[in-house]
Design a protein around this nucleic acid. Structure first.
Lengths: 314, 314
DNA sequence: GATTCATATAAATTTAATCTATTTTGTCGA
DNA sequence: TCGACAAAATAGATTAAATTTATATGAATC
C-alpha cells in the first residue's frame, strides 16, 4: 500500500471516472487503473463497483476512501511541518468566501496580505456555506470565511469580527420615523431577501422569526445581490436588511435611509474556518492576523446579539 | 514520500541505530539508510543527527517522527477496516496487563477468549502502568488492562469491573476485633506495601492519606508480590491490603483473617485501555465482551468508592 | 447492431527499491 | 595520536515496481 495508491483512489472517488481521475493525477489511465486494482487485490476487496455508470463506491469502499483521505491529509502535514520548521510561508493557499462577505471584506485585506506574504499564492473562491463545508472536508479549500456558528465537528471556527444588521428603509415606510429599531418591529413579509442558498438570507429569517409569525409568505421578491435589493427598496417594494460593511459603500442619500437596531444590535459572526487537521496552519495564522488587524479599525462591535446563519425551526 | 520510508524512520527513531533498525525492518542497512536519506532530501532537512552516538533526533525530526507515527498508524487502520468488513477477527493482538491484575484476571478469561476467537494470537505482557501508557502510545501494545482513571488524553478507558480493597490482618492486630473497617482506621506505618512501581501501592497510599498523616515513614517492608506480603503478615509484621480477587485464592484459615471495609468500600477501577485511534478495534471489542461476561459472575460490586491509582499529593 | 465512451490488458520502458561489496566516518582505548 | 572496531555512507549490480504506449474488451446509446 502506498500513499500514491491512496491518492489515486481518492481521485477516482471524487470524479467517479478513471480516465478523468488519471488526468487530474497527471498519469495515464492504465497507470491509475492498475494501481487501484493492485490496492484492491492487496486488501482483498473491491473499492469501486465498475459495473455501474457512473462508477459507484462499494459500501466497504466508502470507509476505505474516508480513511484514505485521512491518511493523505496526515501525510500532507509532513510538508506542513517542514515548512514551519524552515519558517517558510508560501505555496498555494485556497480560501473560500461566502458571497455576502466577499465584496466588502476582500478589498480590505487582500493587498496587505499579498504584500506581507509575497510567496503565498492566494486563490480565492466565492462559495456558499454548504459548499465551503464540503470543500474544507475534502481538502479542496485550505480555509474559508463564513458566518458562524456552524457547529461542524471537524471544523475549527475562529471569529474575525461581528457585523451588525442594518435596516434599509424606503421613504414612506412605517419604520422610516423610528429612531432605533427593535427586532420585534420587523415583519418578514415586508423584507426583501437574498435568493436561496445565502446564509445571510437565513440569518434574516431567523431574526424575523423572533416575532411569532409563520414562515409561509404569499409572495417574495428575491435577488442574488444587495445592489439589486437596495434598488428594489428605492422603488418602494419593501425594506431590506444589510450587513454593516455593505452600508459603508452607500452614497449619502442612501445612508440617510438606514435605520439601526437597538442595542445590542443583531449581528452575524464572521469567522475564519478550517479543518481540524490544520494543514498549512502557519498561513492560516498569518491570514487571520492580517484580517483581524485590518478589520479592527473598520468594525469593532463588541456588544452584539449573534444571529445564527443556519435556518432554525423554532 | 512513501509509507515504507516513514516506517524506516520510525524504526531508526526507536532503535537509534540504522543497522538494528534495518534488521527489524527486514531489509539491509544500505536500503534503509538510502531511503531515510531520500526522504530527508525530499523534505530538505535532517531528521537524524548522525554525528552523535547513539544517533540523535533533530528538533525538526522529533516532530516529523511524531507525524510519521501518526500516518503509519492511520495506514494500519486500513487493514483494520478491511478485517471488519470481512468479519475477520484474527491476527496478533498484544495485551499489556499490570502485575496486580495479571494472576487473578488472566486465568478467568484467557481460555474462553482463545476458544471463541481461535484466529487471534494473544500475546500478553506484564507491564507497569507507566510502561503500558508509553507502549500504547508507540503502538507496541494494542490494549492494556490497568487501574484507572488515568486521564491520559490519547487513551480510551473502558471500565471492566470494580475491585474492592480488603484488609488482611494478623492475629493480635488492633483491627482484628473490628467488624467492618472504616478507612480512617488505617495507618500507613502499619501497612505492608508492594514495592515501588506498582499502582496498587499508590492506591493504598492514597487510601491511607485520607487520614491526615505525613508520608515519610521511618521504615517499610516492601515486596513485589501479594504472596510475600501475606506471608509477612502471618509473621506478624503488620497488616496489608489486598485486591478482592486475590482474597479468593486464600485458604480457609487465611480467609478468616480478612476484614472488609464499610460500605461503600474503597475499590480500584480496572479498565481496558487503548489508543484513541482504535487499531484492531473489533478484537478490542471482543476482548472487552469476553472479560466483562466472565467477570460479571465473579465480581459485581456497584456501590464503591474509587481510589485513584495515581499518587496524589493532597 | 454499429458507435462511442470507458476500463482492462499486454508488452515495453523507465524508474525506484533493494542487495552485495566496499569505503568512509566516528568512537574508544592503548 | 594511533590503530581497532563499530556503524553509516557510497558504488555498482540486480530485482522489483511504476508508468507508458498500444490495443482489446465491455457496457451504454442511438
Amino acid at each position: 500500500m502506498t500513499i500514491t495508491q491512496l491518492q489515486y483512489v481518492l481521485a477516482v472517488a471524487e470524479h467517479r471516472n478513471f480516465t478523468l481521475a488519471a488526468e487530474k493525477s497527471f498519469v495515464t489511465q492504465p497507470t491509475l487503473s492498475m494501481q487501484v486494482q493492485k490496492l484492491e487485490d492487496e486488501l482483498g476487496l473491491q473499492i469501486f463497483d465498475r459495473g455501474k455508470k457512473p462508477i459507484a463506491i462499494t459500501e466497504a469502499g466508502r470507509k476505505i476512501v474516508d480513511q484514505a483521505r485521512n491518511i493523505v491529509q496526515e501525510a500532507a502535514r509532513i510538508r506542513d511541518i517542514v515548512d514551519q520548521e524552515k519558517g517558510f510561508v508560501g505555496g498555494t493557499y485556497t480560501l473560500g468566501v461566502i458571497p455576502t462577505v466577499m465584496p466588502t471584506l476582500l478589498p480590505m485585506f487582500l493587498k496587505t496580505f499579498t504584500q506581507k506574504y509575497p510567496k503565498v499564492r492566494l486563490v480565492i473562491k466565492e462559495v456558499s456555506t454548504e459548499r465551503m463545508i464540503e470543500d474544507l472536508r475534502e481538502g479542496h479549500l485550505d480555509a474559508g470565511i463564513a458566518a458562524t456558528p456552524l457547529g461542524i465537528e471537524s471544523l475549527v471556527e475562529r471569529p474575525l469580527y461581528y457585523e451588525p444588521f442594518v435596516a434599509y428603509v424606503p421613504h414612506g415606510h412605517r419604520l422610516e420615523k423610528s429612531g432605533k429599531i427593535g427586532r420585534e418591529e420587523l415583519d418578514l413579509e415586508d423584507v426583501l431577501l437574498l435568493e436561496d442558498g445565502h446564509c445571510f438570507r437565513d440569518g434574516v429569517i431567523n431574526l424575523c422569526q423572533a416575532i411569532p409569525r409563520t414562515e409561509d409568505m404569499p409572495f417574495q421578491l428575491e435577488s442574488g445581490s444587495f445592489e439589486t435589493l437596495v434598488n428594489l427598496v428605492d422603488e418602494g417594494l419593501g425594506m431590506t436588511l444589510l450587513p454593516y460593511l455593505h452600508t459603508m459603500g452607500l452614497d449619502e442619500k442612501r445612508q440617510r435611509m438606514l435605520r439601526y437596531f437597538q442595542d445590542p444590535p443583531p449581528a452575524r459572526e464572521v469567522s475564519l474556518i478550517y479543518h481540524k487537521k490544520e494543514l498549512k496552519y502557519q498561513i492560516t495564522e498569518a491570514l487571520k492576523e492580517v484580517i483581524a488587524a485590518v478589520v479592527r479599525g473598520a468594525i469593532a462591535f463588541q456588544d452584539v446579539q449573534i444571529v445564527s446563519p443556519k435556518r432554525q425551526m423554532a
